[in-house]
């Protein structure tokens, strides 16, 4: 056996990039499948709800309460935001618990020079790539359906990724802290489903009773829906959008700090 091999001493930076081949190898196995799902689902949603249901909504004279748009235009950007959110939930819960509890790949990784924070950043990088794919494919569907108004609509993709990450980092923390997967089921039922339905994607939150409206506005998804809708339809409200971006960034940042702590505790105890 060769004795010439010597692993390079770790530099303070650059450990994150050492994971590139790892995450790329994992991504390679799944991206085609997710690209197809990411395309087919939006098409079905937009046909059923935007075009089908939309015909009824529009004939009922709801344009005013929808901000003067067709129902298709109203829900399509909201569906982009919710699709990225759901993808973020999928990518940040079970796979994270699996890497801790089942496959234990994180345990293999911390036996190398990598630190838990490097692993967190690397994995979030993969998640961001997945979310970008989801948002971009959905965006193409919006263009095909004639919903997207350029040039602002281009920003709907990065905005969508931000919405996803605002959910990913806190969920990563949750997954790194949680002992058993049953917690995910519960979270999905009482968290994800209500958020999906009541965050302003399908109807304006102003239709809700006041306390529920306030609750909806605390959720990051509401801000994501508003942000993506304004950009997609070419009618951004710049000041409000700055607020949405800041609020989503806050969720990302706090979630990151929590995830960093939870992962270090879980792996390095």
């Amino acid at each position: 056996m060769s004795t010439a091999t010597a692993s390079r001493p770790p530099a303070p930076t650059g450990l994150v990039w050492r994971q590139f081949d790892h995450w790329r190898a994992r991504w390679r196995r799944t991206w085609r499948g997710s690209a197809i799902t990411n395309f087919v689902l939006p098409v079905l949603y937009l046909l059923a709800m935007g075009v089908g249901l939309g015909a009824y909504v529009d004939s009922g004279g709801a344009r005013a309460s929808l901000g003067g748009t067709d129902y298709l235009d109203f829900i399509a950007p909201g569906l982009l935001a919710t699709a990225v959110m759901q993808n973020a939930v999928g990518a940040s819960t079970w796979p994270v618990m699996g890497a801790i509890k089942w496959d234990k790949t994180y345990h293999a990784m911390i036996a190398t020079p990598l630190r838990t924070r490097d692993i967190l950043i690397g994995n979030l990088g993969l998640i961001a790539a997945r979310l970008t794919l989801t948002a971009a494919v959905f965006w193409v569907v919006l263009v095909i359906f004639g919903v997207a108004v350029l040039p602002w609509a281009v920003l709907a993709v990065p905005a969508g990724v931000l919405v996803g990450l605002a959910h990913s980092t806190p969920l990563f923390a949750f997954a790194a802290w949680l002992e058993r997967e049953t917690g995910f089921m519960l979270f999905y039922r009482i968290g994800v489903v209500p958020m999906f339905l009541f965050s302003g994607a399908f109807f304006p939150v102003s239709q809700l009773p006041d306390p529920l409206e306030w609750l909806a506005q605390v959720m990051p998804l509401y801000h994501g829906v508003e942000l993506v809708r304004g950009l997609t339809l070419g009618t951004p409200d710049l000041l409000a959008d700055l607020g949405h971006v800041a609020y989503l960034a806050l969720w990302c940042g706090v979630g990151f700090l929590l995830a960093d702590r939870a992962l270090a505790r879980r792996l390095g105890g």
Binding site: R18, H22, D103, K104, A108, T112, P113
Partner: peptide, 28 residues
Amino acid sequence: GVCPQDNTLDSELTVRENLLVYGRFFGL
């Protein structure tokens, strides 16, 4: 080098890929 009690292999990757990506963590 650490050979843990549980194998902690990446079940989504092939045998050779497991070695390739792991070596990269060491900066090789």
